[in-house]
Design a protein around this nucleic acid. Structure first.
Lengths: 333, 333
DNA sequence: ATGAAAGCGCTAACAG
DNA sequence: CTGTTAGCGCTTTCAT
């Protein structure tokens, strides 16, 4: 026989389907005797309830969609892992989507998720497809995006982090600080934090855009080429640890002493990078808190929308960063 | 109005629900005129088919479950990302499960997945819960596990990789090679490869078990303590790059020259680690090929089980590794 | 080329 | 405490 159904359990136990459903959901009153009979029957035919049929009832599917550029990036991998674990504790399953930073993919995933009746969506994707999506059938929470979207956002204090990092370099004697970033844009808060610190110290800003779509090899080449040609640079503030690591590699190759001749600080501070490169100074994002806050926010929206159709209004939650000094920034006593 | 249904589309288009279903699935004959009318109606009311209801029909849910220890680990993160992308191309969605190496969690996830009518499961989890699961309702493919399970397995050539790595160290002059591993076990192929090379060279084997459950900090402490107390060690073969990185950090701290006084080689060679620590020698797993092979295998099983209920019998596919020499192994000319 | 009716597996009234 | 009757949103025979 194929997959046994609730009906089969009922037949074996000698009760009605409703009764089986009741013990399954622990709803209503049922005598201990019937309950036992049913459990026995379920075990004897290896019954597994069909979750699909259950959620068709209009009930919640207990599904949440996760859209990230790619969990191959430790920042998103760690985030995804934490989010999935927390949601699992609350009885939710997670559908994973890696948009690879392709807007069409994001749109496709978005449609797919609502079509699958997800109860909510958490996204850390970068394009604006999602942020500007009109009315979405499921509550959505964004992670680590610039302000202004129409959906609630959870992120670390990018502005402060970048500001602190740059200030730290300046306090440690840097005067010619280059900032490597993925994409320049008006509302890039890390870039803004950098600029603010640079201006305050009356230094010359220098922002190098490495490009989102480019491969890691291209990024490396650009970092190397730039540093080769600008020997006057005495510090690097990178918008992520990967770029910072490249700068570090360049220094090693050129036998330039870090931090004496070149100071370097990155951004993200994932457990992965800190385990591999503990020396690297970096702005540490509170990844665990971000995951927790995003999940809390989403669950709240899901439960709220059961009563009223309130939309969480682009409210955002900004979590504090910390700085890991490592040894790639000079310590000023 | 809540979510529009197929019925609403039919009403708006002035046709029967059946017809709408037909254009939706592109099945049977329908006049171009009706087709257009229906598409128009769908667009006008923003219709999104309910995937849940569709799969209830007994049809495939086009869902695949992924069970990994945690995608926070770049090896699994990269694998998960590649697998998800490939499956998405084939029209499958992915449910992500991070078992955190807890057997109970694996079992729970397994039940949850079959209950959700997944068409198949890919797992890289380490416990034996899954490998020994009796009859499973969905086809299952395992990644990177020891032989012997009852399910098809896709993995890299662990034995050869470990053997080659150890041989390389020996050829470069190492005589006292310690092997750091997570868990010792009879069918740990990396350990076997190490032992084989050690025996061939008539050296003394030295296997240090760091423990699966322990935290990264505990691992680091153990690595450091061991190396502190065994200064005679002149090479490290680590069963993953994380341990190898720890050895490297110890050497830096002790100002011991790598590779002159201590050679180090790891295992996995993820894009992440190679980007962050390009100097680190490592046995590179063909992650992309692993992902591709696992997906191919699974899709094949899924399609096969539509006709006959063949089980892919614990057949396994072993993919070749490559060695990245970096600069932590001496080059012998 | 299109429609009516039955049912996928389960849950939710409403009786009794 | 338990069973009967509908129906979730969609697909699918079988007619027409």
């Amino acid at each position: 026989m194929a997959q046994p159904k609730l009906h089969d359990v009922a037949r074996v136990a000698g009760v009605s389907p409703t009764t089986v459903s009741r013990v399954l959901n622990n709803r209503g009153y049922i005598s201990q005797q019937t309950r036992d009979k049913v459990y026995e029957a379920m075990a004897s035919i290896h019954y597994q309830p069909n979750a699909i049929a259950r959620s068709l009832q209009g009930a919640k599917a207990h599904l949440v969609g996760l859209i990230f550029p790619t969990v191959a990036n430790p920042f998103y991998g760690e985030l995804a892992s934490l989010i999935e674990s927390r949601l699992a504790d609350e009885g939710y399953k997670v559908v994973l989507c890696n948009s690879q930073d392709r807007p069409e993919a994001e749109q496709r995933y978005l449609d797919m998720l609502v079509s699958h009746q997800v109860d909510g969506i958490i996204t850390g994707a970068h394009s604006d497809v999602i942020a500007n999506s009109p009315y979405l059938a499921a509550p959505l929470v964004t992670i680590d995006r610039a302000e202004g979207g129409r959906y609630p956002n959870v992120r670390c204090d990018n502005l402060q982090g970048a500001f602190d990092a740059t200030r730290l370099l300046i306090a440690s004697g840097a005067r010619r600080i280059v900032h490597f970033t993925s994409t320049q844009s008006a509302n890039n808060l890390r870039q803004q934090g950098y600029l603010r610190a640079i201006e305050q110290a009356q230094l010359i800003p220098d922002i190098i855009e490495l490009g989102f779509a480019a491969s890691a090899e291209q990024h490396r080449t650009r970092v190397f080429t730039y540093l080769d040609r600008h020997r006057e640079v005495d510090a690097v503030f990178a918008s992520n640890d990967s770029y910072a690591a490249m700068a570090l590699q360049w220094a090693e190759q050129e036998r330039i002493c870090v931090p004496d001749s070149l100071q370097i600080i990155g951004f993200d501070g994932t457990t992965t990078v800190r385990g591999l490169l503990p020396h690297l100074a970096t702005v540490v994002q509170p990844i665990e808190d971000l995951a927790g806050a995003a999940v809390d926010r989403l669950l709240h929206l899901i439960n709220a929308s059961e009563t009223v159709t309130v939309n969480g209004e682009g409210s955002s939650e900004v979590l504090p960063i910390t700085i890991h000094r490592g040894t790639t920034v000079r310590s000023v006593s």
